[in-house]
Nucleic acid binder design. Structure first.
Lengths: 212, 212
DNA sequence: ACCTGAACACCGTTCAAGT
DNA sequence: ACCTGAACACCGTTCAAGT
């Protein structure tokens, strides 16, 4: 449940010692991405427009198109940033559950993070880090030691699909609740149900793997 | 693989013997939804605007707001229509795999169908039919006969998340390919890999269920 | 190298007024 | 009951021109 409390409460980490809204000097892809990620977390994806980001940066909208080919390219850079949080330290010992949780937490750490990453991933951009971490963990999993690379690739896709689908629904439900729409399931503790649902999904997947 | 060939090739089924683009008489929610679904399949979600739909109907954009409160309400009606294809005949004998395939096929039968249904489902609208079919099938499954209703609800959510996540990625990848973007996995036969990935996911889920 | 200014072709939504 | 006409407050993107 802890992840639900920290949503929307990110302190942006600056990679440079430079103000994100650089009203004096010029901008580059990194600083623009930093400001865009903070803006995403503040206002959400529907309100993250190129024009609004330009205003935030103290620049004309057209200036952004010198740094990024289009809005989708900007979103891919944001997706990369979001997944930098994925903890790759436990991938080597094959702790698939831990990696799945790390990816899930990275997606939920920023407002609409799952949607941004999913759309970029579908376009073949942005989710390389998550994909690689899962593949490494699955490859070194005990049940999969004698498994062909093609099958590992399939399993990575299955797990990533579940994680993305799960995070997407969680965040869209959060968004729906903030608009006062009624959720279909009338559970007593929805956040606990969500947490156990995620664990159930990941473990069901792992237990269902053939042990040949 | 058959489903991939029939994507984008829908002949719209008219529930009334009435032209969908009713340029003479007046419109109602049903006829507007029919035209909107055809337009969605023709041009895709990003190009399905209220203004374009109004033009298709031979009407001013503002006319649509007499029938639907806003665009989201229209999309929920479309989501309901898409899921009318879900085959509910096999839910009673607990064939979860068949139901999962039926939902998947319904989502893939219209362009961007998964995205429309997912966003509506997250808002608590539109996916009741899919949710109910899965719940019925899981309840009458052999491995779940002695399972509490709360657990069935969790499992329904897990499976639906996987199905929606899977269909969403498949369709976004189709969309990406039409724009010439390179997919990250360089598989020999991607459509066959997708099909087996889906089966793997559903079966892994079912085999992972406790048999208590 | 990086940005401005101005334009193009669009959006969703509201609301008085018509029939 | 159903729709028009007109407006409001926006979009993403391009491109010549500036520094």
């Amino acid at each position: 449940m802890a992840f639900l409390n920290t949503v929307h409460l990110n302190a942006v980490q600056y990679t440079q010692n430079m103000s994100p809204d650089n009203h004096s000097g010029r901008h580059d892809r990194a600083s623009i991405t930093t400001t865009a990620l903070r803006l995403l977390d503040d206002v959400g994806l529907p309100d993250l427009s190129m024009r609004r980001l330009a205003t935030e940066l103290g620049v004309q909208p057209s200036a952004l198109y010198w740094h990024f080919a289009n809005k989708q390219a900007l979103l891919a850079a944001i997706a990369d940033r979001i997944l930098e949080r994925v903890n790759t330290s436990r991938t080597r010992d094959g702790d698939v559950v831990a990696v799945a949780h790390s990816i899930r937490d990275a997606l939920l750490a920023y407002r609409d993070g799952a949607e941004v990453v999913m759309s970029s991933y579908a376009l073949g951009l942005g989710a390389d880090r998550a994909h690689a971490a899962l593949t490494t963990a699955l490859t070194s999993t005990a049940t999969a030691t004698a498994t062909a690379t093609a099958q590992v690739s399939d399993r990575t896709a299955v797990l990533l699909q579940f994680i993305l689908g799960h995070a997407l629904l969680v965040q869209q439900r959060l968004h729906a609740e903030s608009y006062g729409a009624a959720a279909p399931s009338a559970d007593a503790d929805p956040s606990a149900a969500i947490e156990s649902t995620f664990d159930l999904g990941v473990r069901a997947f792992l237990m269902g793997l053939p042990t040949e």
